[in-house]
Design a protein around this nucleic acid. Structure first.
Lengths: 136, 136
DNA sequence: GTTGAAAGACACCATCC
DNA sequence: GGATGGTGTCTTTCAAC
């Protein structure tokens, strides 16, 4: 399904997705056109979903990184999900999970003050357990 | 610090980081050279950390997505961290967090069988609570 | 998958606003 | 800080092997 060269290509594109097909080819011992063709296939198969950038969220002004376990006894999740929609600026992921919690919510905030405001709103719809991420 | 044009540039680069400076410029109503200069500054300031790709991990063969809360009463975390080093293939993030747990470990596995093997090894060093991510 | 060629596009620079 | 125009280079793409 995926040979070693494909894996090398993915590795290199992870490190630098703006590399040219020719240079990428040199890294994986292939010519430009052959590399280009491999990459096109990886795109077609949906393995490469897109080309993006890594952003430093701290420097962008969102240093407070949190994981919030969402707990609710209510079968109605819509109020919570609707609230999240109003807070998209802070939401990174909202994972539906198995276990004690319903969701695991990853968010980033500019400050603990803003986090506090967010939690006040959140608490109107669900209970939660807050964890601050100290280090990656 | 960061004006609206910079934010637009970051947005567009998130969507497609292989866009040319000229095309990116059109999207943010700037010329190629002006855009290029903005992007260079965003790189220099460390806001753009790099250019990468989005990979579909399901299609790559890692469909089992998990969040594992790591709990230990021991002050020695090294055995755990050393174990993780041997399991890099599966580890996405190992966040040090506040709260009841010491770490929040995000992993992906090819199957529940492989997950099980991982947990058997993990349990030699720490206690854990496993959550499976059902949906993003 | 390789090679070689051709067309086109790109980034960069200097200059000017 | 941005626009313009020109230049040299690089990139991609295609056909033939």
């Amino acid at each position: 399904m995926l040979d070693n060269t494909d894996r090398l290509i993915l590795d290199e594109l992870c490190k630098n997705s703006r590399i040219t097909m020719k240079d990428l080819g040199e890294k994986v011992h292939l010519t430009g056109p052959a590399t280009s063709s491999r990459v096109a296939k990886l795109e077609d198969r949906g393995i490469i979903e897109g080309y993006t950038i890594k952003i430093n969220q701290d420097k962008l002004g969102y240093p407070v990184h949190t994981m919030i376990s969402i707990i609710t006894n209510s079968p109605f999740h819509d109020p919570y999900l609707t609230y999240l929609d109003t807070q998209k600026e802070f939401v990174i992921h909202n994972y539906k999970i198995s276990g004690d919690s319903c969701y695991l919510l990853e968010c980033r905030f500019p400050s603990t003050e803003v986090l506090d405001e967010f939690l006040v709103g959140l608490n109107k719809h669900v209970n939660y357990k807050l964890s601050i991420i100290i280090n990656k």
